[in-house]
Structure formats: C-alpha cells, structure tokens
C-alpha cells in the first residue's frame, strides 16, 4: 500500500511537468500581453519592461529559465502587482483559500451525510420532504445568486453576519457566509447521494442479516449501513473538491475573500504570465493531492480494493 502511494505521488511529477509546459506556451498564445494598456506604453519603456522580465529573450530560453526557477519553488515577480513576488501573493492567499475550501468541503460532507441519514431513516416523512426540497434548491441555484441572497438576508436585513472581508476584519464570523454558499450545492448533492445510497444499502441482504442477528437499529445504521453507503460519497469527494476549488474563485469575489482566486482572475485578464503560471501549478497540485487523498480514503473504507 505504501509503495502504491509513493508511486502515485511520483506520477504527479510528469503530470505537473506537462501542465506547466503546456500552460507556459498556451498563455503566451493568447492575444495581448502583460504590458498592454488602453494608453499604449511608449516604445522605450516597453523595451525596458521586456528586458526587466526577460521577455526579450527567445521563448525557449524563457521556458528553461522558468523551469529552473520553479524547481526552486520560485515563481518570479508578478507583472501586475509590482510590489509583490508571486510567491508572496500565493503565500498570502493560499491559506485563506485552503481554509475556505476545506471548511466548505467539511460542511458539505458532514452536513450532507447527516441530512442524508436523517432523510433516509425518515423516508417519506416530513424530515425527508424538507431535506429533499432543500437539496433541490441547493443543486439548482447557482453560486452567484445564492451568495448575494445570503448577503442580503444575513448581512443587510438581519445584520448578524458580515457581508464580506475575512477573519482579520470580522473574526471567524467572516467565514460563515462564504463557506455556506460554497458548500451548499455540494452539501445538497451529498445529501441526495447519501440518502439514495443509504436507502439502497438498507434494502441490501447484509442489512437484513444484521437485523436478523438482533442488532439495535442504531448499531445497524452506524456499523453496517454507513461504511458501504458512504463509498459513493467518497467517490464524489474528488469532483466535489474540484468544484469547490473552482467555485471559490467566484465566491472570493462575491464575499471579498482574500484568497488566490481573485488574483487568478485578475492575472488571467491582465496576462500576468508568472502569476497565471503559479496559480495553475498550485491549483493542479491541490487537485492532484485531493484525488490522491480520496483514493486513500476509498482504499481504507473498501476492503475489496487492494493497492499493489
């Protein structure tokens, strides 16, 4: 098992290499460049800018230089944010985005499973109907609608939660709205998924066996139902986490969260090559690691899977 994971971890390297190489050349294919302005930069200044960022060198040389830097985890200077290195931008934003992402995922998973269990065990009772309706809303309402609605209700009408900004301004309260908004569709989907799979497992033969053995209903659910019923949820964790990571780019703007999502959007719009590259690398790493973790959890839960 350990060997399997070391191998998986090592296989990340060629993947990353390809991602980095492709991105490096692709983003330079997009029209425009980091120094394009509505008010054109005078030629003399432009030449100096190009020199400053080694953009006057042949592309392949730039590529080699970049690969060298990245091996030392040095992403270089940002073209847009002159005062900060790309590493500084990532170092500031990544912990914020990661905590938002992880908290949202935890909310979605814990909340989704809890609601899934409640509604499965109360199938066709009011608890179930409420849960199913909430799930339908969660799945069908997009983030950029849900966010402002929650802001309006909790920030402007009830005035109990901040509309935006982060922990340094409002304390932990600041996390609630963005995390809930971000988690909501995945919470809803997980609730639906776990409800369905719990119901399916409840009908399975081995649950009948467990009951025929005289186990209490609670023991049946906790010991016999959940492990099997949660496997589809675990499988969904990979896509859910990617979705949350992508969604957080929207949510960060809506709630003024100082993560890496907002600089990502800005860097793409402004052709901030170094920053785009770093964001691509960081997001790829997050997704790759997330999938690896999901694999591990899956392997731990399902004894039928063996890693060689």
């Amino acid at each position: 098992m350990a060997r399997y994971f070391i191998r998986r971890a090592l296989s990340v390297i060629p993947t990353l290499f390809i991602v980095i190489t492709l991105s490096f050349f692709l983003i330079r294919l997009a029209p425009g460049g980091p120094f394009a302005r509505e008010r054109d930069v005078p030629e003399a200044i432009l030449q100096n800018l190009l020199k400053r960022y080694h953009m006057d060198e042949p592309l392949f040389k730039q590529y080699l230089r970049y690969m060298g830097d990245i091996l030392r985890w040095d992403f270089g200077p940002s073209y847009r944010y002159r005062d900060l290195t790309v590493n500084e931008i990532i170092d500031h934003g990544l912990p914020v985005s990661m905590s938002l992402g992880v908290i949202s995922l935890a909310l979605a998973v814990v909340g989704g499973i809890a609601v899934g269990i409640i509604s499965a065990l109360n199938q066709n009772k009011w608890q179930d109907y409420v849960a199913v309706s909430v799930a339908v809303i969660g799945i069908s309402v997009p983030l950029f609608v849900m966010g402002p609605v929650l802001q309006l209700v909790f920030g402007m009408r009830l005035k109990i939660l901040p509309i935006g900004q982060w922990v340094s301004t409002h304390g932990l309260k600041a996390i609630i709205l963005p995390a809930v908004t971000l988690a909501f569709p995945y919470f809803a989907y997980i609730a639906r998924l776990s409800r369905a799979s719990i119901l399916e497992v409840l009908r399975s033969d081995y649950i009948r066996t467990a009951r025929a053995k005289g186990l209490k209903e609670s023991a049946v659910v906790w010991k016999h139902v959940l492990k099997g019923a949660l496997l589809p949820v675990v499988t969904y964790l990979g896509p859910a986490f990617s979705g949350i990571v992508v969604g957080s780019i929207v949510i960060e703007s809506v709630f003024l969260v100082p993560g890496i999502g907002r600089p990502f959007v800005q860097s793409a719009l402004n052709r901030d090559y170094t920053l785009i590259m770093a964001e691509v690398v960081v997001y790829s790493l997050i997704l790759i690691i997330a999938n690896l973790v999901v694999d591990i959890i899956y392997g731990l839960l399902d004894p039928r899977i063996s890693y060689k």
């Binding site: 402002p148 920030g155 005035k159 509309i163 935006g164 703007s253 809506v254 003024l256 800005q266």
Partner: peptide, 18 residues
Amino acid sequence: FIANDDINVGYNLYKSGA
C-alpha cells in the same frame, strides 16, 4: 481601503453602513 472587484458587494457594503 477595502479591496473589491465585485461592484455589487461594494454597493452592499456601503448600504449596510460598513
């Protein structure tokens, strides 16, 4: 100076008195 790139939330911040 609050950094903001979504004018809706900026407007809401103002309206809410923040």
